[in-house]
């Protein structure tokens, strides 16, 4: 076991004691994990955006490799995928892009199973996932997330990821049964992606009641988890991030809200650097929210059982920053602030 970081801090969270691969994003404090579509709108822009997000506080990055039939995505990310495909993004260009990104944060490739299956496949014989995983590992990718690959079909990819030292992150949904959760926990590594609500990806003004339910359910499995939990789907403001970690999550995943920023940059023809600046600030807001929420969670409920969020807000963090952001130059952002009465 290598790369032992602050084992004490990690241990407090019930997180892997040795932080390597994707899990090292969660080793120090509550993690902020952004998602972007690679190549949206260009490979060069993506490199800058990812670096800006990490500068802003991202602890890991989910980098989407665009697929033509993204059945788990809502409109925002679908449109980002269309921009990326029209911009010429391919799996091989994706790996070259990852090789150019210079950040310490681990990168997970998020894509659909057919692209993994076809990469490097020969015309003879059935396709294999191995060439994709090998190339991903070579490029420096540390984890893989596949929204259309439930645990039932994941054994070949799990084996290939084990062989090349990659994490395989699984998504659990509000509808996931206990049996299925157990099956995911047997196979997951890196972190467990907790889908906050039903449906496809997309920014929402309110976090779902079911986020808290899901996290509360995970509490029961806490001792067997062995991996950190990160909540995604619908998180679009620092305040949401705060609530998510206050409810017991080890990290927060933000996708559509960031892809919105990229989309608006494209629509308005803004310079890449300006969009990167905005992403950096937005990242900082999410990171502050996540860290503040983790503090709230501990203060309010030492067992991490603060599923409704601590009522006593930390004035220095999450919410005010979210509000400040709302007053900023991008009023279209649907930052929740104090307007929603959700959990």
């Amino acid at each position: 076991m290598t790369a032992v970081t602050d084992a004490g801090a990690a241990g407090d969270e019930g997180v892997a004691e040795t932080a390597r691969g994707m899990a090292r994003a969660f080793a120090e404090d509550a993690a902020f994990v952004p998602y972007l579509v690679a190549g949206d709108p260009s490979a060069e822009a993506t490199v800058e955006y990812v670096e800006a997000l990490v500068e802003g506080g991202a602890d890991a990055v989910e980098l989407g490799l665009p697929f033509s039939e993204p059945i788990a995505e809502g409109a925002t990310i679908q449109e980002g995928i269309v921009r990326a495909l029209e911009g010429g993004m391919t799996p091989e260009r994706y790996f070259e892009l990852v090789e150019r990104i210079d950040v310490d944060a681990p990168i997970a490739a998020m894509t659909y199973y057919n692209l993994i299956l076809q990469h490097g496949s020969r015309s003879e014989g059935p396709p294999s996932v191995e060439p994709f995983v090998a190339r991903a590992a070579e490029a420096g990718v540390e984890g893989v997330i596949v929204p259309d690959l439930p645990v039932d079909e994941a054994d070949p990819l799990r084996a290939a990821c084990d062989e090349y030292g990659l994490d395989l992150v699984f998504i659990v949904a509000p509808t996931t049964t206990d049996e299925r959760l157990a099956a995911a926990l047997e196979r997951v590594s890196g972190y467990l992606y907790v889908q906050a609500r039903l449906g496809t990806t997309g920014a929402r003004e309110e976090t779902s009641d079911r986020t808290a339910e899901s996290l509360a359910r995970l509490e029961d499995h806490d001792r067997e988890l062995g991996v950190p939990t990160a909540v995604g789907f619908g998180v679009s403001a620092g305040e949401h991030a705060r609530r998510v970690t206050a409810a017991g999550a080890d990290g927060v995943i933000v996708g559509s809200a960031l892809v919105d920023v990229v989309a608006e940059g494209v629509e308005r023809g803004r310079p890449t650097a300006a969009v990167a600046d905005e992403l950096r600030e937005y990242a900082a807001e999410f990171k502050r929210g996540a860290v503040a929420g983790a503090g709230d969670g501990k203060a309010g409920a030492p067992d991490g059982n603060g599923e409704t969020g601590a009522p006593d807000r930390d004035g220095e963090t999450g919410a005010p920053d979210g509000d400040a952001r709302q007053d900023g130059p991008e009023p279209r952002l649907r930052t929740g602030g104090g307007t929603d009465g959700g959990p």
Binding site: I71, A72, Y113, P147, D148, L149, P150, V151, D152, E153, F170, I171, V172, A173, P174, T175, T176, T177, R180, A184, Q195, L198, G199
Partner: peptide
């Protein structure tokens, strides 16, 4: 090959 949310 579907999202986990649909599996149940």
């Amino acid at each position: 090959y579907v999202p986990e949310a649909l599996m149940p």
